[in-house]
Simulated scan of single mutants.
Amino acid sequence: MSGDEAAVEGPLHGYHHETYVVPLPGEQVRWKCREPRPGLLWFDRRCFASEEEVLGALQGRIAGIPDLIAVAPTRLQRFIEGETLGARYGSGSRIPSSLFGQIVSLFGQLALVKPDSLAAERTCTSDDRAAEGDTAGFLERLVLFTERRVYQRNMHRFDGLFRDLNLRPASFRNLRRHVSGLTPRPFCLLHADLHRENFVVDGAGRLWTIDWELAMFGDPLYDLATHLYLMRYPEDQERRMTERWCETVEGVAPGSSAGWETDLPKLLAYKRAQSVFTDVIRTALSLTEEPEVDERLLVRAGGGLQQVLHAATEPLGIESPTVEDVTTSLEKWYFKSYTPVGGKRRP
Results as ranks from 00 to 15, higher is better:
residue 126 S to K: 08
residue 110 L to I: 13
residue 105 S to T: 13
residue 121 E to N: 09
residue 113 V to K: 05
residue 119 A to D: 13
residue 116 D to N: 10
residue 113 V to Q: 08
residue 123 T to C: 15
residue 116 D to A: 10
residue 95 I to R: 00
residue 111 A to R: 01
residue 106 L to M: 10
residue 118 L to E: 05
residue 105 S to I: 03
residue 109 Q to H: 13
residue 98 S to R: 14
residue 123 T to P: 14
residue 96 P to K: 00
residue 120 A to R: 01
residue 122 R to C: 06
residue 115 P to W: 00
residue 98 S to Y: 08
residue 122 R to V: 05
residue 118 L to Y: 12
residue 108 G to E: 14
residue 99 L to M: 09
residue 102 Q to I: 08
residue 124 C to D: 13
residue 111 A to H: 02
residue 99 L to H: 09
residue 126 S to I: 12
residue 106 L to D: 05
residue 113 V to H: 05
residue 95 I to W: 01
residue 111 A to I: 03
residue 126 S to R: 11
residue 104 V to R: 01
residue 120 A to M: 04
residue 105 S to Q: 15
residue 95 I to Q: 00
residue 125 T to W: 11
residue 110 L to S: 04
residue 120 A to N: 02
residue 116 D to P: 02
residue 105 S to E: 14
residue 101 G to D: 12
residue 125 T to Q: 09
residue 104 V to C: 06
residue 124 C to W: 07
residue 113 V to A: 12
residue 101 G to P: 02
residue 124 C to Y: 04
residue 101 G to M: 11
residue 117 S to V: 03
residue 115 P to K: 00
residue 99 L to Q: 07
residue 117 S to H: 04
residue 95 I to A: 01
residue 96 P to G: 00
residue 114 K to A: 11
residue 120 A to S: 02
residue 122 R to W: 08
residue 97 S to F: 14
residue 100 F to L: 09
residue 121 E to D: 10
residue 126 S to T: 11
residue 115 P to S: 01
residue 97 S to V: 07
residue 107 F to R: 05
residue 104 V to Q: 03
residue 109 Q to V: 15
residue 99 L to N: 05
residue 103 I to M: 15
residue 117 S to P: 00
residue 121 E to F: 04
residue 106 L to V: 09
residue 99 L to V: 10
residue 109 Q to Y: 14
residue 102 Q to N: 06
residue 100 F to T: 07
residue 116 D to Y: 01
residue 105 S to H: 14
residue 126 S to C: 11
residue 103 I to C: 13
residue 125 T to E: 12
residue 121 E to M: 04
residue 103 I to F: 06
residue 126 S to F: 11
residue 102 Q to R: 06
residue 109 Q to M: 15
residue 119 A to R: 03
residue 108 G to Q: 13
residue 107 F to N: 05
residue 106 L to T: 09
residue 122 R to Q: 13
residue 105 S to R: 14
residue 96 P to T: 01
residue 126 S to Q: 11
residue 98 S to D: 10
residue 97 S to A: 14
residue 114 K to T: 06
residue 111 A to N: 02
residue 115 P to R: 00
residue 116 D to M: 03
residue 99 L to E: 11
residue 99 L to Y: 13
residue 98 S to F: 09
residue 121 E to V: 00
residue 103 I to L: 15
residue 98 S to N: 10
residue 120 A to D: 00
residue 98 S to H: 12
residue 124 C to T: 10
residue 109 Q to D: 14
residue 119 A to F: 07
residue 120 A to H: 03
residue 121 E to K: 13
residue 104 V to Y: 03
residue 119 A to V: 10
residue 102 Q to L: 05
residue 120 A to T: 03
residue 98 S to W: 07
residue 100 F to M: 08
residue 114 K to D: 02
residue 125 T to N: 09
residue 120 A to E: 00
residue 124 C to A: 10
residue 116 D to C: 06
residue 102 Q to D: 02
residue 107 F to L: 14
residue 116 D to H: 06
residue 114 K to E: 04
residue 122 R to D: 03
residue 118 L to I: 13
residue 103 I to A: 11
residue 104 V to M: 06
residue 113 V to M: 11
residue 126 S to Y: 10
residue 120 A to Q: 01
residue 113 V to D: 04
residue 106 L to S: 10
residue 104 V to W: 04
residue 106 L to E: 03
residue 98 S to C: 10
residue 110 L to Q: 06
residue 116 D to S: 11
residue 110 L to P: 01
residue 118 L to M: 13
residue 114 K to V: 03
residue 98 S to Q: 12
residue 97 S to N: 10
residue 115 P to Q: 00
residue 105 S to L: 09
residue 95 I to L: 08
residue 121 E to L: 07
